[in-house]
């Protein structure tokens, strides 16, 4: 079960800079650790995360093993119209995740 939490304000005024946050449950395996039997654990990190607002990309992150386990990002976008805020991410194993929320924008 891939699990993430997102925080997008339900409403904003046009022209506001909106604060969004995302936390994803993921070990962000560095590839440098061994398991209890001394076998190397393969690197597996969330390597890419994109945030789209009404289809247009507003933020993109290429992440590496230097990001802490259970990655957390807080960033911003400019409110224009009511619509959908979508997050999509993928890890080294090819497992994809997504989350979405809607925002109501008033004049």
């Amino acid at each position: 079960m891939s699990l993430a939490r997102i925080l997008v304000p339900p409403k904003a005024r046009r022209g506001d800079v909106v604060d969004v946050r995302i936390a994803i449950q993921h070990p962000m395996e560095t590839g440098f650790r061994m398991d209890n039997n001394g076998r190397k654990i393969a690197k597996n990190v969330v390597n890419n995360l994109v945030c789209r607002y009404n289809g247009a990309e507003v933020f993109r992150a290429e992440l590496g093993s230097g990001i802490a386990a259970n990655p957390y990002l807080q960033f911003y976008f400019l409110a224009k119209d009511s619509g959908k805020v979508e997050f999509e991410w993928v890890d080294d194993a090819g497992e994809k995740g997504s989350a979405a929320a809607s925002i109501a924008v008033t004049a």
Binding site: A4, R5, L7, R21, A23, Q25, A69, Y72
Partner: peptide, 15 residues
Amino acid sequence: DFSSPAMLWATRGEK
């Protein structure tokens, strides 16, 4: 409660 990484597990429990 949002930035706490522990809340990811609490959210799992809630589900």
